[in-house]
Write a protein that binds this DNA or RNA. Structure first.
Lengths: 197, 197
DNA sequence: GTCTATAGTGGGATAGAC
DNA sequence: GTCTATCCCACTATAGAC
């Protein structure tokens, strides 16, 4: 699908993703990206319209997996058990490859909001919608439980942060995130029929 | 203790803390801070040595509460119950006033590492030490449980992030963080004598 | 303590040769 | 596609009057 001339562009995306993660978007200059590629700063403008276009291209690569899960949830009959099943599906979707995207977004918290909003990237909006929909299924719906549900869905982010200054492997991070999500969800459903038969 | 002439300085710290949180440290200029104060950009240099000095002054205001808890932990006889007690004490220390500090650090993840490290501020180092010490008390010490323990200690950060795009009150955020920490800790100690009598 | 003025730097971005 | 050269701008920081 993509032509042979896309090699430099893709290399630039890899380098940019790494540098944006390590140093942050604002603290990374085009010169730095170009240097690591061994090309001139101006050459980047052949492949991208500018710095913001680079980060947009990175965000566009990431489809919003939450949207698929959201569609599935809306097909099911609502029940607390559906909440448990949805969270379970969500945490099962965590993979080591997705961690680099998580780390990139974690290192640039205000990046999504800060983009000159023209065609806004839809990263994260699906997850927010998913949290809203699943919130309707909470047996006891309070401000506290709503936040807890979101914490369960964001457990992968929390695990990445918790393991930041650690030598924990990606697998350990994912395992911890899944366990935390399961524990919290199970607690949210305690006293209902959601316990496994 | 602080003289009458410190009014502008303190006002500048408040404004800077807010703007650094909303926009990030790098994205906030001294001109912007000065404008909100109604003074000239250059006047800030009378109160602070420079931009980095402003953020350092903000970090110095925050003592590292984890260090006190760490000292207490080291006085106690080690046991899984001590782990539970320590986490409980830690989450009880969350208050609404501390949330603004949490949000500030969350909005600037690489700020602590990025400071030209002379006299490094000790924010966060105590928490890391605390996590290490408490990790020794884990009944089942694996990479996964070590990360989970850190997640419990960082639950306030996770709750703040989870509630970011929400209208949840500070109290609800704190309540969710405490509950998450308790749930996770209790799970880490399941099967030991740590259950309450 | 606050101001005006300006130095000095580094960034994003463009023009045009090759 | 990549380069050199350049423009423009915003920022940090300093000098010195008031």
């Amino acid at each position: 699908m993509r032509g042979r001339g896309a090699r430099t562009r893709e290399a630039a995306q890899q380098v940019a993703l790494r540098l944006f993660t390590e140093q942050g978007y604002e603290a990374t200059s085009l010169r730095q990206i170009a240097d690591e590629l061994g090309i001139n700063k101006a050459s980047l403008y052949y492949h991208f319209d500018g710095k913001e276009a680079i980060v947009r291209s990175l965000l566009e690569q990431r489809g919003d997996e939450a949207e698929e899960l959201l569609a599935w949830v809306r097909e099911q009959p609502p029940s607390p058990q559906l909440l448990a099943d949805a969270v379970l599906r969500w945490v099962e979707s965590f993979t080591a490859e997705k961690l680099q995207g998580i780390r990139f977004l974690a290192a640039n918290p205000r990046l999504l909001a800060g983009l000159t909003d023209g065609e806004e990237p839809r990263v994260g909006v699906g997850l927010s919608q998913l949290a809203d929909d699943l919130g309707e299924l909470l047996p006891e719906r309070t401000a506290e439980t709503v936040v807890l549900l979101r914490m369960a869905l964001l457990s992968i982010n929390a695990a990445v942060q918790a393991a930041a200054s650690t030598d924990a492997s990606d697998d350990a991070v994912i395992a911890a995130a899944r366990r935390a999500a399961r524990i919290v969800t199970s607690d949210l459903l305690a006293g209902t029929t959601a316990d496994r038969p």
